[in-house]
Design a protein around this nucleic acid. Structure first.
Length: 204
DNA sequence: TTGGTGATGTTT
DNA sequence: AACATCACCAAA
């Protein structure tokens, strides 16, 4: 299996482009119990000050500080008093833009992911192993400690590669679970992939 | 299969 | 009081 770590340059591109191009790439996390790998199948773009649904809409705070770093960092936030979600920071320093990872197809060390999620170890529930932003964080063991991780380091990164995936079509829809900024079609997903989140909007 | 609810940090 | 959520249980 070939897994090439993406360069900084990739993350410095326009956020909508990064959100689309992350589809089919791999989230890799070096954990104590192995090298966890999953294919990114669903993302959402959040465009900083321009975007009322973005955490960065009202400018820099202690919570969203990582969003304002240069592209290629991991922004992890805690939400609804229970869950963590992971975002890929994009563009140059000070923009406050990022891409939310919404769903992942488990690829390697799947058993370790099942353990973290408390799912059946025979794989019968794998369809929901990482089919949502908080689920994928739990599967990969991503918590507050991972906030601010540099994706060019040795702990967490994104890789290009080919692991038995044919060409695919990109679906586009409005974003899930927000009210402000709902008119924008800034959700992207691999059409027909069985590991998508159960979020409702489904378009083109 | 759908719908209501609990858990409860962070910002408004 | 709202929120970039998910799991659970009850009702239909």
């Amino acid at each position: 299996m070939q897994l090439r770590k993406l360069p900084r340059k990739f993350y410095l591109q326009p956020t909508l482009k990064v959100a689309k191009e992350l589809l089919g790439k791999y989230l890799v996390r070096r954990a104590k119990d192995g090298l966890l790998v999953g294919r990114i199948v669903e993302t959402e773009a959040y465009l900083g000050e321009k975007d009322p649904a973005s955490h960065a809409y009202r400018g820099l705070t202690k919570r969203n500080e990582v969003m304002f770093r240069k592209g290629g960092h991991l922004y992890v936030y805690f939400t609804y008093g229970m869950h963590f979600c992971a975002n890929i920071v994009t563009e140059e320093q000070g923009k406050g833009r990022a891409v939310l990872l919404r769903a992942i197809e488990p690829i390697r060390e799947v058993e370790q992911m099942r353990r973290r999620r408390g799912l059946a170890l025979d794989g019968s529930d794998d369809i929901d192993l990482a089919s949502g932003p908080a689920k994928l964080c739990e599967a990969f063991g991503i918590v507050r400690k991972e906030n601010g991780t540099d994706l060019l380091g040795k702990k967490v990164w994104i890789a290009a590669g080919k692991i038995g995936l044919a060409s695919f079509k990109i679906g586009i829809s409005t974003r899930v679970g927000i009210n402000n900024g709902r008119e924008h079609k800034w959700r992207f997903y691999i059409k027909g992939n069985p590991y998508l989140s159960s979020g409702k909007p489904v378009d083109t």
